[in-house]
Every structure is written in C-alpha cells, then in structure tokens.
Design a protein around this nucleic acid. Structure first.
Lengths: 147, 147
DNA sequence: CTTCAAATGTTGAATATTCAATATTTTCAC
DNA sequence: GTGAAAATATTGAATATTCAACATTTGAAG
C-alpha cells in the first residue's frame, strides 16, 4: 500500500519521481517509433495539434505542446525550413502569429499518428486495457486539480 | 470513457501526452518548492539516492536519477565543487567510481526532503488520498510492464 | 599469459534550451 | 485621443544536454 512518503522513504515512493520515470520510459518508446520518420516527439505534438486545420498562435501552441516560448519558436523555424508548417500574421491581432500545417506536414502527421497509435496499442497489449484507461482517467484528474 | 486513440483523436487522449503533461506540472511545483534552497530537482534525486550511505557507481546513479551518463557526470562535478558529494574509486573494480554524500550534502538533503514531502502532502490534499495511492500503484505497474 | 572485446566513466564539440532583453501591437486609464 | 502598461513573439547570450570519441580497467578466449 502506498502511503504518503516520509522524509526517509525511498524516492520511488514519491509521485513526482514515479511520474518522471514513467514519462521517461513511455517517451523513449515513442521516440524510438518516431525515429523511423526522423522526427522528435515534440514535432509530432505540433503537427497533431495543428492538424485540426485551425490557425494556432505561438502562445497557444507552446502551451498545448508543452514547450516554452523560445524553444517553440526555434523548433518552428526548423519546421518552416522543412516546409511542414507556415506562419501567417493574425489579421485580428497583429501581435500574433498563426501557425498552419502544410500539405507536406499533413502527410507526415498521418504517418506519425499511425506510429503513435501503434505504440499506444502496444502499451494496452502489455499493460491491459482496464489499467490503461484507469491511468488515463487519474492523470486527467491530476492535471485538472494541479492547475 | 477513454478508448485507445484513433489517428484523428486529440492528442490529449494519448497516454504519452498525459504523462508528459502531468509530469511537467508536478515537476514545476516541486521545482518551485526546491528553489527555496536553490537546487534543481535532479540534485534532490541524487542526494536522496546517495543518502542511503552506500556508495553508488555513476552508472547505477544515472539510472536511478533518470539522467544519462554525461549529464550526470557534469552535474556531479558541480556538486563536488559545492562539497555536497565526493568520488571514491571503487577498490573492487577500478573502472568504477563510487559516489558518497558529504555531511553538508546530508544536511541539505534533509531540508530538501522536507520540502518534497510537503509538496506531496499538498497534492494529496487537493487530489485525494485514494486517487494518489491508486495513481502511484498504476504508475509502478506501468513502469514494471514497460521495461 | 596475451590479446581482444566489453564495461565504465569522462571529455569536447555540436546541439538544444533557457533567461533576459527587445520589438511590435494592443488595451486601458485618463 | 494619448501615453503607459500588458500581451505577444523573437533574438542573442549564457547554460545545459547530448553524441561520439576516448581512456582505463576488467573479463574471457585462445
């Protein structure tokens, strides 16, 4: 039974540590899959978010893909060079830049999604459908409560 | 009900994404607490692991604190400069270096643990005891099944 | 015993991330 | 309407991380 960790209890009883460890492992698995397309996980996230076809501002996008502003700017620079996405100045608010995915980006996004889905299926296989869903639910609640 | 994500389902239904998001938020909270001592989360992990008083090799330690080798080496360099830890060559296997925590490191570790425990108590408060324990259990199982 | 492969840790160069400062545009108080 | 403050994105310098190469030591095959 997990109890709230005391000062001398092992680090493996801390939620913060367990989250970091689980995240690291799952992220590595995903990274390995995506490396088939030579793309880092963050670019998958970016393309996936942009794939709704709407323009997203940099701030919005940074929040959604879990990157801070300057890091995102530089990653987007690369993706623009690779013609995966493009910038449009927001006509409603000219401070903002709206990001869109190109056709090339859409095609890549489809291939990446297929890899990501297959990874998740692999997790469900070895970890179980019930546990996976339960874990997702708990994570959503945690994220909601942590804001 | 969470289902295995399809190719066009939002990124928030991917376990990999939920883990990354939860980890990011909890890690930020912890970071904020630990900043009172001016110490990054990784150094808390290192001190905590070394606080069992046994010597740990760099490889072992890198695995335990979720850092890769060169990153750990450089962080340990800093901590040696700060007199928090020290290196001893393993007499049994002279390729290895055994890391130990100094008295100064132990004192800091106690203060950091207290901050970390208080953070976890805060999580339990707002998220619930039952959910927290259940989440920990599921994460442990995931980590076990992913190896 | 010698030699060669594997294990361990560190280093330096290349790359990526972050922090603080900047530029631009909008909003809001007056 | 004007000017100050806030919001948004980018940039450049400072830091940190990673990759590949290296050095040392051990283990094991012959």
């Amino acid at each position: 039974m997990a109890k709230p960790p005391k000062e001398n209890s092992p680090i493996t009883e801390h939620l913060a540590y367990l989250l970091a460890q689980a995240n690291r492992e799952i992220n590595r698995q995903l990274e390995t899959r995506l490396s088939k397309e030579g793309v880092p996980v963050e670019q998958w996230r970016i393309l996936k978010v942009l794939s709704d076809g709407n323009g997203h501002s940099m701030g919005e996008l940074a929040e959604a893909v879990l990157l801070n502003h300057p890091t995102l700017t530089k990653m987007i620079d690369r993706m623009v060079s690779d013609a995966l996405v493009y910038r449009v100045q927001d006509p409603k608010d000219r401070r903002k830049v709206l990001m869109f995915v190109s056709d090339r980006g859409k095609a890549l996004s489809r291939r990446l999604n297929s890899l990501a889905v297959s990874q998740e299926e692999h997790i469900v296989e070895s970890y179980g459908d019930k546990s996976t869903n339960e874990l997702k639910r708990l994570l959503e609640n945690l994220i909601g409560s942590a804001n």
